[in-house]
Simulated assay, not measured.
Amino acid sequence: MALTLVEPSVELYGAWWEAHEEWGPGLHEDGFGLAATDEVESPDGFAAWVERVKAEDSTCRWIVEDGRVQGGIALRHRLNDVTGHIGYGVRPSARGRGLATWALGAMLDEARALGLRRVLLVCLEGNEGSARTIERNGGVLEEVRGDVCRYWIELPAAGEPGVPAEKGADG
Rank of each mutant, 00 (worst) to 15 (best):
V53T: 11
N137M: 00
L34D: 11
G72E: 01
C60Q: 13
D44T: 14
R136Y: 00
R150N: 01
E51C: 07
P161Y: 09
R118L: 06
G72F: 00
W152K: 00
G24R: 03
T37K: 12
H28P: 12
E160N: 06
A169W: 15
E29D: 12
M107D: 09
N127G: 10
G71Q: 03
S93Y: 05
A47S: 14
S58G: 06
E125A: 15
R76S: 03
S93R: 13
V163K: 11
L99N: 07
E142Q: 05
L116T: 02
E41V: 10
S9Q: 03
A74G: 05
P92Y: 04
G171P: 12
V6R: 14
R76H: 04
A55K: 04
A165T: 13
M107S: 09
Y151N: 01
C123L: 13
D147W: 04
E65Y: 07
L5D: 09
D30S: 15
R132D: 05
G87F: 01
I134K: 01
A165C: 11
L12C: 02
T59L: 10
V53F: 04
D81Y: 04
L27V: 14
V140F: 01
E56T: 07
R132N: 05
R136V: 00
L99S: 09
K54V: 06
A19N: 01
R132A: 10
S42I: 11
A103E: 04
V10D: 04
A2D: 15
D109S: 13
W62M: 13
E154Y: 06
E7H: 08
W152V: 00
A106S: 10
V40S: 09
A47C: 11
L121Q: 09
A35Q: 15
N137L: 00
P161R: 07
V144Y: 03
L34F: 12
A2W: 09
I134D: 01
N80A: 08
D30A: 15
W49D: 08
T37S: 15
A165D: 13
L116N: 01
M107N: 06
G89M: 10
F32A: 12
F46M: 12
G31Y: 06
E51S: 13
G146C: 02
I134V: 00
H28T: 15
A165K: 12
G146Q: 01
Y151T: 00
A157G: 07
L12T: 02
G159D: 04
A35L: 15
P25D: 15
V53I: 12
T101I: 04
R112G: 13
G171M: 11
L114C: 07
S58T: 08
L34P: 12
V140E: 04
V144T: 10
A48V: 12
L121G: 10
E51Y: 05
V40M: 14
